[in-house]
């Protein structure tokens, strides 16, 4: 009787080890496969979401779809591309009567763009990120009448870096992609 029990439990033990071995083998094989062919296996830092400005159509989805409010996407100014125009397509409403900082002329609904006089005829525009809601109006304006120096970018000090980005899922242009955290911006 004793012998029989031992035999039975031996067999069960053996089968158990076989099953566990198979499980470990499957996981190990998966890991090996990824290490050989997948992008960024060795990266310790994560891949992060970013907007490709070349694809972005400023549809406004960034303002409404982010899981945090206000959105982790902000307007980003690439100063090196800016023409420092007096008549800024990103700052003024089309057909603005006077080129000044009065609210009725401003394109930005939250007044997040600051205009500073540098020297005639140049003005510098900076974004107050606390106010920006990522509606993309200024970006559109700058693209229609300007150098396209205003772009929408995911700000990684705010972004929660969800595994599935809710804005990316809603983006009609498929402009979101994952980039290595070591170069987290696509300035275009």
């Amino acid at each position: 009787m004793d012998n029989k029990t031992t035999k039975k439990s031996d067999r069960r033990d053996f089968l158990g080890w076989m099953a566990r071995g198979a499980g470990l083998l499957a996981l190990g094989a998966g890991g090996f496969l990824f290490s050989k062919r997948s992008r960024g296996w060795k990266n310790t830092s994560r891949f992060v979401w970013q907007i490709d400005p070349a694809k972005c159509s400023q549809c406004g989805a960034c303002a409404t779809n982010c899981v945090i409010a206000p959105s982790a996407v902000k307007c980003t100014h690439v100063f090196s591309r800016c023409g420092y125009c007096d008549l800024c397509g990103g700052y003024f409403q089309p057909g603005a009567k006077t080129l000044d900082t009065s609210a009725q002329n401003a394109l930005c609904p939250t007044g997040a763009i600051k205009r500073k006089f540098i020297e005639p005829p140049y003005y510098e525009y900076t974004i107050d990120e606390k106010l920006c809601v990522a509606c993309g109006k200024c970006v559109k304006g700058c693209q229609s009448f300007g150098n396209g120096s205003l772009i929408l970018q995911v700000r990684h000090d705010l972004c929660l870096n969800c595994d599935e980005c809710a804005i990316a899922a809603a983006c009609p242009e498929n402009a979101f992609r994952k980039v290595p955290a070591t170069s987290p911006a696509i300035l275009g």
Binding site: C56, C82, G83, F145, G146, G148, G188
Partner: peptide, 8 residues
């Protein structure tokens, strides 16, 4: 996205 209408 990027056009150079106005020089730097």
């Amino acid at each position: 996205a990027v056009v150079s209408r106005f020089p730097r």
